[in-house]
Amino acid sequence: MLDIQFESDDRLTLAGRFDASQADHAMQVFNTLDSSCTVDFDGLDYISSAGLGVLLKTQKRLGESGDSLTLVNLNNHIRDVFVYAGFDAVFSIE
């Protein structure tokens, strides 16, 4: 299960598991973003290519207007996935 909470207009938190069964719902939530946003991974245990796809589509959409996602508090396993995928070059990761 994936939990997505807005802490403010420009910061949301992810918790749980971001897998293929959660991608459609997550896409709906991320589609509501219309400006730069910080995504806090502190409670996120796992992500697969389905989750990466949601983030990539959002980053591309926001990029058209000069905005972007900033990703924070990734655990080491998730950070490895981002590096393997080359996503560390297309996201600001703190």
Partner: peptide
């Protein structure tokens, strides 16, 4: 392609690529 610019990235194919990495 894990090195192209953002506007040229697609998510397709990434899953099996990651499997082979992991």
């Amino acid at each position: 392609d894990t090195t192209s610019a953002l506007d040229q990235r697609v998510a397709g194919g990434l899953g099996i690529y990651l499997v082979k990495k992991m």
